[in-house]
Design a protein around this nucleic acid. Structure first.
Lengths: 132, 132
DNA sequence: ACTTGACTTCGAGCGCACTCGAAGGGCAAA
DNA sequence: TTTGCCCTTCGAGTGCGCTCGAAGTCAAGT
């Protein structure tokens, strides 16, 4: 039988672990993107592993361009419990589509950029053309 | 021998063609992202095909996340003529690297999102687990 | 007891990229 | 000539996502 150590981290430790600032962490809480975080006897935030997992998920959503208002919506759904699972799944599926579309767009634009690079390379190799 | 028709477009026509607003087009000019556009006898902007090509390139750079300040830098280099070609090529190459990195990041995050979707799908298929 | 330093809340400020509105001019069709 | 539209410039405003600073609290170390 193993002992359950309930490990927890301060706001600055949590910030370092998830790659956000302490300011941003408090702001996420204030904006309802995460549940109110537990406090110690002195009223200081204590982040559990679960809190960090949630934050890592949120940073993933942010990095992939989900607006804060949608993250808030997700948090609200999660707060309402199991009956919103279908809605949350739908939210992730929609977001997946957006990310796929974004990747496709970037790949398209990348082609253009590479054409441009090729053009410059050939232009500089062979004398000089117009300044474009 | 073909006749060269010098076609040109008003600001609103140009806006429609490149997918920006007239406000944004004027703002790009004011911010030095494009050369001052030619005017007709009444002082109204006339966009040439070359202008549109340039704008399309700029929108590509913007879509791929290039900050306006870098686009301005590019415009300044282009204004200086052929001796800045190497610098402009380097700028495109750097940007290419950033876009590639961004695509890789999105693909990584996409995996996470898809894990999440799988988790939800299995969780909803088989009774109910924790609300996550 | 005092210092240090991390924490608290609150509200204001910032950087980016537009976005909008006001006030006025020019020109073409009715 | 009037109507209507598109154009001009200028400066102010917006939305997003933080970011910062002030002022105060608390607990541990010397």
């Amino acid at each position: 039988m193993t002992v359950q150590v309930q490990e927890a981290w301060s706001v600055s430790e949590a910030a370092e672990r998830v790659g956000l600032t302490t300011h941003t962490l408090r702001w996420y809480e204030q904006e309802g993107l995460v549940e109110p975080v537990g406090r110690d006897s002195a009223g200081r935030r204590r982040y559990t592993q679960e809190d960090l997992d949630r934050l890592n998920m949120l940073t993933c959503l942010r990095r992939t361009g989900m607006p804060v208002r949608d993250m808030r919506r997700y948090a609200e759904l999660a707060r309402l419990g199991e009956e919103t699972m279908a809605a949350r799944l739908a939210l992730f599926q929609q977001h997946r589509e957006r990310v796929l579309a974004r990747i496709a767009e970037l790949q398209e634009d990348l082609k253009y950029i590479e054409h441009k690079i090729d053009w410059y390379a050939s232009e500089m190799g062979a004398g000089c053309g117009s300044a474009n």
